[in-house]
């Protein structure tokens, strides 16, 4: 079951990798293991924390609500926006600790994209959604508590 160990003098002892090759592999292993073990995120150096947090029945998501002229808010799926906007939820999660100008910059950026997809939108809400999965008969339901973090209004044409 162990790896094949060639006897000394066998032909496969010849042609061992040179210094550059050994340095390349050693460097790659150091760059892989140090961030990986310590937990540094400097893409492509990463900690490989894929799905490492155990999930529970509670989940916080950051969402966008489009508000029409009648004042009715409705959730907007970021997946329906162009590719450059689809991970905006991760930016929204950083906004509670950000300054007003940063919040407004993100809000207006998203409003522009949402208004292009959904004409008639007058305002945009950036919301925090604390959700909980609860049994509901034979099914599951999601209880949501939404809190608006920031709102911005479309500039009149």
């Amino acid at each position: 079951m162990t790896g094949d160990v060639p006897a000394p003098g066998r032909p496969d002892d010849a042609g061992t990798p040179g210094r550059a090759q050994r340095w390349l592999v050693a460097g790659a292993l150091v760059l892989l293991l140090v961030p990986g073990l310590i937990g540094i995120e400097m893409w492509p150096l990463t900690a490989w924390k894929l799905f490492s947090f155990a999930r529970t029945d509670r989940q916080t998501t950051w969402e966008v609500e489009a508000v029409d002229a009648g004042g009715r808010p409705r959730p907007v799926s970021l997946d329906g926006l162009p590719l450059g906007y689809q991970l905006a939820g991760w930016h929204l999660a950083q906004l509670p600790g950000a300054e007003y100008l940063r919040r407004d910059e993100v809000c207006r950026t998203l409003l522009e994209a949402v208004a292009a997809e959904h004409p008639g939108v007058t305002n945009l809400n950036l919301t925090r959604n604390d959700r909980q999965l609860v049994p509901h008969g034979d099914d599951w339901a999601v209880n949501s508590v939404r809190e608006v973090l920031h709102s911005c209004r479309a500039e009149p044409a």
Partner: peptide, 11 residues
């Protein structure tokens, strides 16, 4: 398709 990514969402 990444080309349209706005500056505010570019990290």
């Amino acid at each position: 398709k990444l080309a349209g990514t706005p500056a505010a969402l570019f990290d």
